[in-house]
Design a protein around this nucleic acid. Structure first.
Length: 418
RNA sequence: GUGGGUGUAGCUCAGUUGGUUAGAGCGUCUGGUUGUGGCCCAGAAGGUCAUGGGUUCAAAUCCCAUCACUCACCCCA
């Protein structure tokens, strides 16, 4: 038997309702904030991601699904959306048509990592990008949108972390200082952190190794080396969040794995999922469009993991959706009336009712059991002597009451069914 | 890529120190008189015990390998 690829999942009836609910909620919220949906292709030229996200990042260096098409072009399945959205805005000159572009998406993403709780190879994100403004209100808005959605869902165990990475110059300067601080302590670091010292020194801060934490306790912090403009921007973001009553904490060691971030970064974590606890993450990327070879367009955005959100909901016992039901089950009493029963059922379907009937020539009892299993609100018994005189039996399945209804007066029948 | 755990019916799981035709609950299907659901009752279908080797008179049970799933590291949504 061929099975689904490792790290991919079928979403079956019973589960899909939760996805539809979440998608509807997300659309509604993002549209209230006046974001417009954008859909970009599932794959792009690999160079878009390697340039946008950063050649050295884990995503690009070891997690992308990359292959060559028949014309030898290197193609990659999208591992995230920001680079694609910026590409689309540049390509269609949306930045010239509108001063500010507020866009949102709901889409599958692909990363070839080892699957675990809250991590798949094909996973789904919703997110938003606001392009064309440096205003801190938009940074705060991203956080507010996520926070609102989690709140509406009823998630309890969430915490908002924010930080500022400043501009690249101050970050590089800071890295130098951190490198100096650690230069005589390298030998005491964990093996992982020794590697991080070379590849991604900021990551040593969130090492889970005790020795590392001990060493990092007294390390200089990035925020102490930010330029004044960045600091001021960060202050404004915080003030707006306070005014919007979004609880948050500044996490001076919040580092994100994508190269394009400048100034604000944030994550919202859940204590209700496994160790992959970030439900969403994002930040500002004022230099990305130029890195992609385009005009300068400042931007800020976020992405949220839908599997993780649904997992958190499940673990917190929220998002209990009502059972599905149908309006009418048409029970066929006489075997020879199969065609007429189907035609009648389809007539009701045309009148926008959710209707089911039997396709297997089953007994009346079996049809009734099926109607019950489907939570049918009504049953229409089609056939027998009532059929001979142009009527049928309508049964209300909640209270069991039955009445004879005239089949020639469909409108009054429909009224009874609605 | 590196570790740990787990693989028995569609689902959730039992299966005693290796010992006859492999079990339960739920679900599915049929029936409980001629045209009526839920509850109840009766019955049925459904398993190469993940796969391949090995040990043994005898393996779901012990050993090895492979694969899959799962959790964690790394990293991230």
């Amino acid at each position: 038997m061929i099975k689904a690829i490792t790290g991919t999942k079928d979403i079956l009836p019973g589960e899909i309702e939760k996805w539809q609910f979440l998608e509807k909620l997300v659309r509604n919220e993002l549209e209230n904030f006046n974001y417009n949906e954008i859909r970009t292709p599932i794959f792009e030229e690999t160079a878009l991601f390697s340039r946008g996200i950063g050649e050295a990042t884990d995503i690009v260096s070891k997690e992308m699904y990359t292959f060559k098409d028949r014309s030898e072009t290197s193609i990659s399945l999208k591992p995230e959306m920001t680079a694609s959205v910026v590409r689309a805005v540049l390509e269609h000159s949306l930045d010239k048509q509108f001063g500010l572009n507020k866009l949102y998406y709901i889409s599958p993403m692909f990363r070839q990592e080892r699957p675990q709780a809250g991590r798949l190879r094909q996973f789904h994100q919703f997110g938003a990008e606001a392009l064309g403004s440096m205003h801190p209100a938009l940074d705060a808005e991203m956080i507010l949108i996520c926070y609102r959605i989690f709140k509406i869902l009823g998630l309890k165990n969430v915490s908002v972390k924010i930080n500022s990475l400043g501009v690249p110059e101050s970050r590089e300067n800071y890295k130098k200082i951190l490198r100096e601080y650690l230069s005589d302590k390298i030998k005491d670091l964990s093996e992982d952190s020794k590697k991080r010292y070379e590849t991604n020194i900021l990551r040593i801060f969130d090492s889970k190794d005790e020795r590392d934490s001990e060493i990092m306790k007294n390390a200089p912090l990035l925020i102490e080396y930010l330029d004044n403009v960045s600091l001021e921007h960060f202050e404004k973001v915080k003030q707006i969040l306070l005014a919007a009553q979004v609880p948050f904490e500044v996490d001076p060691v919040l580092v994100r794995g994508l190269d394009y971030y400048t100034n604000t970064t944030f994550e919202i974590l859940s204590g209700s999922v496994g160790s992959q606890s970030a439900l969403c993450g994002g930040g500002r990327y004022d230099l990305l469009s130029e890195q992609l070879g385009g005009r300068k367009i400042p931007g800020v955005g976020f992405a949220a993991g839908m599997e993780r959100i649904l997992l958190a909901c499940q673990n917190e016992g929220i998002l209990q959706l009502p059972e599905t039901c149908i309006d009418v089950y048409v029970v066929r009493i006489d075997k020879e009336l199969e065609n007429e029963t189907a035609a009648f059922g389809n007539l009701l379907r045309e009148r926008n009712l959710k209707v089911e009937f039997d396709y297997q020539s089953r007994s009346v009892k079996a049809q009734m059991r099926e109607a019950n299993r489907l939570n049918s609100i009504n049953v229409i018994m089609f056939g027998g002597e009532e059929y001979q005189r142009g009527s049928a039996v309508l049964k209300n399945m909640k209270n069991g009451e039955q009445q004879e209804v005239n089949l020639s007066d469909i409108d009054s029948l429909i009224n009874k069914l609605k």
